[in-house]
Design a protein around this nucleic acid. Sequence first.
DNA 1: TCTTGAATTTAGATTATTATAATAATATAA
DNA 2: TTATATTATTATAATAATCTAAATTCAAGA
Lengths: 96, 96
Amino acid sequence: MDLKLMQNKCHAVAGLMKHFSHPQRLLILCFLSDGEKSVNLIHEAVGLSQSQTSQFLRRMQAEGLLRVRREKNFSYYSIENEAVTKLLKSMQRIFC
Amino acid sequence: MDLKLMQNKCHAVAGLMKHFSHPQRLLILCFLSDGEKSVNLIHEAVGLSQSQTSQFLRRMQAEGLLRVRREKNFSYYSIENEAVTKLLKSMQRIFC
DNA sequence: TCTTGAATTTAGATTATTATAATAATATAA
DNA sequence: TTATATTATTATAATAATCTAAATTCAAGA
């Protein structure tokens, strides 16, 4: 592996990996990997409180990981970055 | 993506991802991905203090991520789990 | 034995993250 | 307007991770 390349990227990649390093947040990302979902659906699927689900989603959106679409009084979140989806799929292939 | 499968694994995988979510620790793993290295070599390569490098290596070894081989008064660390190497390579392919 | 280099351990302060509860905002429908 | 459902915000307590410095272990060589 090319260490030089990683030295440039390691902060960005590690920052991204932070979102993968919490069980329910990882689940959220997996859950979103096949398309956008509402906050309510997400919080029920992953078993986090509504509040914490909202907080996590908001933070991930603020950091460019997720996209949000508001319609009526629903918020639909989805994965912004194709690279993230790719990595999730790799992870699943390797560990599941 | 199969959420059920991930629900079983998410704690283990997230636990592993924790080690990827710190810039220098990620670098350590990348550095080790082509074979074992001494603590000294690692700490110089990634720019952490010798003490902290040792602490990180020890923790990753304790959690089954790394293997250690002692020879004279040197310790050589390497990646224990093939899945980790695979994921590192995927990550590199996607982000570098 | 004394010293040196390599690595580890310990302890403490600092900082970051997570969980929880309470409250607020917003849109819709009755 | 009132009620309800959905989402967001804020504050705080609890927990975990990181960094730093100092002390310790261990093996080898002078």
